[in-house]
Simulated assay, not measured.
Amino acid sequence: MTGEALDARVVVVRHGFTLDAAVAAQPGEVVAVMGPSGAGKSTLLAALAGLVPLTDGHVRLGERTLDAAPRPRAHVTPSKRGVVLLGQDPRLFPHLTAHENVAFGPLARGVDRTVAHAEADEWLWRVGLAGRGARRPAQLSGGQQQRVAIARALATSPAALLLDEPLTSLDTETAADIRAMVREQLAATRTTAVVATHDAVDSISLADRLVVVEEGRVTQSGPVREVLATPASRFVAAVSGLNRVVGTVESGRWTSGGLVLEAGDAGPAAGLSVGSPAGAATAAVFSPAAVRLEPIDGATWTGALRLEASMSLTRPAGEWLGRIVRLEQTPAGVRVRTAGPEVAVDLPADRAAAAGLVPGAPVRLRIDPADVRFIPA
């Protein structure tokens, strides 16, 4: 089984929202589509599946044109596309057993009954449900139902598989297990797939390439690790677990708010030089764990500003004054959000508690220029 090449430009205009996004996948390639809620990911997949009409654009799968608009308009019905869309709800037939659900697709395509049932047994074994084929959906857990749904989808030998955040409703451990199973089966069957998600783990675990959609537009695309390492927007930086601070270059120095870095301090990979255009917008990218934070004891924000002014000429590059905006819990401790510029700092919970950090308090922050990468903004 091998998927077919997908080439699509999807333009959908409805209810005051416009989606204009292009996505392409080579045969057997997995492409992740990532974006915040409301960005247009589900609309994009529904259009690829033929469930939402195009306002403009095209959808081609292999040698076939599935959709074209506005003129000449073409549309292949969803049932004849060879495309399967699987979302958060497994949508299993409740009156059929797991085995019968998986065998349904091959039987509908005219596969011999004996062969179809043998394939269903094999698929249930592949997804880790051997021996559970006689159970109906109500007798299965949510994770088991999703495994049956994936087996049913792949058993139809689709030309392309569309996964619309299929793991969102599952607990962390179950989602991790199913993610590994999906990756294994997509690789084994060479199925072309598009996976819509807001989770970086899905993109890293499942996909070869990543397309980022924000407010209906593609804002970044490329190999998954390349996109996550060089975030072109605050959304991508957030899901990558990185700070992305936009500043300007003047006379070989990068500045954003109170943070100043010498161009040469970050090394030749920084992408900055003394000859950089004056005022050029450049983003500094660095890990929240690389930032050092110290409270300024007993100081009000106004007092801290006076102290900052007196030290402005002697302050080293990579050190600046910030104000705490809020504290967020993380699995490893506390993330401190600061302003001036907006930077996140990760601290162990005991250190954050000992420092007595509260919103509005001034803090001194430091970043080693060697921990900073610069990319075009």
Rank of each mutant, 00 (worst) to 15 (best):
L154G: 04
G133Y: 00
G87V: 03
D112M: 06
T114R: 15
S79I: 09
G133A: 05
G87N: 09
V102F: 02
G128V: 04
L124K: 03
G87A: 06
Q146F: 09
W125K: 14
A180F: 01
Q145W: 11
D112G: 06
E165D: 14
G142P: 11
L170F: 11
I178M: 06
E119Y: 03
T172E: 15
G142T: 12
E119G: 12
L124S: 05
I178P: 05
G87W: 05
A176F: 02
L162T: 11
T174Q: 13
V195G: 05
W125F: 05
K80V: 11
T168F: 07
A193E: 04
E173Q: 15
P70E: 10
A134M: 07
Q145F: 12
F93Q: 02
V102T: 01
F93D: 01
S169E: 15
M181N: 02
T156E: 06
A108G: 00
A196M: 07
A134W: 12
L129W: 10
E119W: 13
A134Y: 13
T156D: 04
R71F: 12
R132C: 10
Q88E: 11
D164T: 04
L92F: 10
L85P: 04
H117C: 04
A196W: 08
A160R: 08
A180S: 14
R179W: 00
L163H: 06
Q144K: 13
P90T: 00
L170Y: 10
R126G: 15
R132Q: 14
E100D: 14
I150S: 00
V182T: 11
A159P: 12
L92M: 09
A153I: 00
K80L: 15
R135P: 07
R152Q: 01
H117Q: 12
P158N: 12
A160G: 11
D171S: 11
G133E: 04
